[in-house]
Nucleic acid binder design. Structure first.
Lengths: 106, 106
DNA sequence: TGCGTATTTGCCAAATTAGCCAAAATGCGT
DNA sequence: ACGCATTTTGGCTAATTTGGCAAATACGCA
């Protein structure tokens, strides 16, 4: 395969991989409404702060979230808001799957 | 956290996780153009057939691809074409990241 | 039934991921 | 400089993912 094509798919996969975790999706969802500091996100997520910090590092590395110091704390911002649009499509996938299950049963 | 919210994010994450692999993205990309059998996809991917079959199983389980027997072979179809739309947004993420790198250097 | 082609599954080793605790940073206020 | 609040990193373990080979399965055809 064309190595350029190869690396384009790898780049895309890296971003999807960064999103592909319930906690990280929750974080993205929250940040799509408003920029938040790590502590706030931790409350929502309900896991160890270190865990949340690691998730944020992953999102940051993928370019989805930007972290900036605000004195004592770190403010997290969604860099590319459009990522949330994808979920309307995702829902379609889920609904299609559900409908097919119903078809099988009925 | 609300368990209903929890499981909604888990469902979304499962789908993203299924997409989050270069080979599987390549397969989805190919299928977005035309339905293909496993052997054809294997040629494009260039990995062991068993590996491709496993990737297809993952995509199928996520509800992204449907597999149906056509005599000797298995035809793979993209169930929800809109998944490919996401990539325009992904490209935005990549470009934003690239632009920021340039800003840092320049 | 037996053969050849197409696809899936069992099994295994290597690599990656996720989560927590403890420890280190980072920055504010005194 | 010191204590306090906030965030990140080191180190560890358990679980998951990936990929290939070999074996099994599914199907069409003679």
């Amino acid at each position: 395969m064309d190595p350029r094509t190869q690396s384009r798919f790898e780049a895309r996969a890296r971003i999807l991989k960064a999103m592909a975790h319930p906690t990280r999706l929750l974080i993205l969802d929250e940040l799509s409404r408003e920029a938040r500091c790590v502590g706030h996100l931790q409350e929502i997520v309900g896991a160890d702060v270190s865990t949340v910090s690691r998730h944020l590092a992953i999102l940051s590395e993928a370019g989805l979230v930007t972290r900036s110091r605000r004195g004592n704390q770190v403010l997290c911002t969604l860099t590319v808001p459009c990522v949330m649009n994808f979920f309307s499509c995702i829902e379609t996938v889920l609904q299609t799957a559900a409908r097919q299950s119903i078809d099988l049963v009925g």
